[in-house]
Simulated scan of single mutants.
Amino acid sequence: MSPREFFLLYEKLLSGTITAEEKLRLQEYTDQMEAEEHPWQAEMGDKTEIENELHALLEQEIKPKKRTGIRTLTTILTAAAAFTGLFILLSSIYKNNPTLPPSTLKNLASNKVTPGCNKAILTLADGSSITLDSAGAGSLTTKNGVIIKQVQNGLIEYNDKTGSSATSWSTIATPTGGQYQIVLEDGTKAWLNATSSLRFPTTFRNNERTVEISGEVYFEIATNESKPFKVNFDGNTITVLGTHFNVMAYKDEAKSKVTLLQGAVKVNNHSGEQLLKPGMQAQMTDSNTRITTCKANLEEVIAWKNGYFTFDHENIQSIMRKLARWYDVRVNYQGDMNGKIFSGTISRFDNISEVLSMIELTGTIHFRIQGRELTVLP
């Protein structure tokens, strides 16, 4: 069982949704902690004590007060797992690792920077705008026969009843600390991460469906063989018929990335084109550079859509850019950040203090936060 599988099964245990078969698999894994690929290390603490704590949890049906992400689980999964390959109980780490900086952790715990939420601005063709937030379901507006409806918190859909041949464009944009989902007129679904935008026609009337994006957007394209779907960003174009894929094209990232989960897509720019198969990722620095491809870590790519931060051997600067977008904080660095690489999975719906404390437990990096100013220190 991989650490990721253990992570998911343990969350099911905490939420009360684990099956008998899954519970048995989880129990068997905890019985095999000394497997060759996960050797026990002295700094983990007392092996028997930690195993007993895990077994005790497995023998109970633990119900969380509310499902806002990883609660008890965050006491098991830490960024230190990147170096040990094992989930560690933080209670044991505290008891057996007196070098941890308690004053720094206390500083983080006292900070109340909350996670992002469902919010966006919808700008219509006539220039008017609608603030999208936690309002309940129902019709938001009707413009020239186009019905815009909030189906649920964080999700709107378009329904064109005009039959007109004219094409008008709208834009949905998320701020820092925001996310939103939209169902386009053809049934295509799009999820917008923080600081992202999607420009789209209210209805697709021509022989192709074209949209423009910035930031990060995950698509599930409605199949229509007579109307290819095209996504334009930074001089690059993705062409599909019906598929699931993620586009990451933030201005502050060195590369734009297109990751295919299902179906097939063609990515092209001034330098040429690449056809992607499921599980592959296309990367480009700008529209004039050659498109390169590689195998993708799909769980890491779409973790944001599923409510998590997943870091796969990621440097601290990249991690902080993700946190800054979601928690709306400004990040500063002091000291040498070279070689600060982390792996792990943490809920996006915990306060920032919980996320930072998890990373601090590696003992290789520390944080100071005042208001929305976050300083990273070695």
Rank of each mutant, 00 (worst) to 15 (best):
L90V: 14
K257Q: 09
E185L: 04
E61Y: 10
G116V: 02
D186Q: 09
G127I: 04
S129T: 05
F204Q: 08
T141D: 01
N236M: 03
G363R: 10
Y158T: 05
A222Q: 04
V301F: 01
K255S: 00
G187P: 00
A80F: 10
T142P: 01
V265G: 12
K23C: 00
F200L: 11
K66M: 09
Q41C: 05
N269M: 03
T30L: 15
E225S: 15
S347F: 11
L26C: 04
S343F: 00
E5W: 03
I130Y: 11
L275W: 13
E22S: 09
T74E: 11
N232Y: 13
Y94S: 02
L132W: 12
V331K: 02
T167S: 13
R71H: 10
P115M: 07
E253Y: 08
T223H: 14
S347P: 06
L361Y: 14
L108A: 02
L184F: 14
A296P: 00
F229E: 09
L298E: 01
V113A: 02
T75L: 08
L13W: 01
A79N: 02
F349C: 12
A120K: 09
S318Y: 15
Y250Q: 10
L140Y: 10
A109P: 01
I182T: 12
L8E: 05
L86I: 02
D31F: 11
L184S: 08
E34R: 15
F219L: 12
L24M: 14
K257A: 06
K63A: 09
F7K: 03
F309K: 08
S92H: 06
G127A: 10
S165I: 01
E225V: 15
V183M: 05
E59N: 10
G242D: 07
R372C: 00
T72V: 06
G163S: 03
E360W: 12
L100S: 12
T289L: 11
F229N: 11
F367S: 09
A81Y: 13
L124E: 07
E225G: 12
A135L: 12
D336W: 08
T375N: 11
T243L: 01
S357H: 01
I147S: 04
M320S: 06
W326G: 01
G178C: 03
F7C: 04
L122H: 03
A81S: 12
K66T: 04
A249C: 07
S318M: 15
Y158R: 06
A166K: 10
T123W: 15
A42L: 12
I88M: 13
F311C: 00
Y10D: 04
N269L: 03
H313G: 07
L132K: 06
T167W: 13
L89M: 07
L8P: 01
Q283W: 02
T68W: 07
I130W: 10
D286C: 04
N268R: 05
L13F: 00
L58N: 04
P102M: 11
W304T: 02
N351F: 04
G279E: 08
G339W: 15
S318G: 12
F87G: 09
T167G: 06
I213K: 13
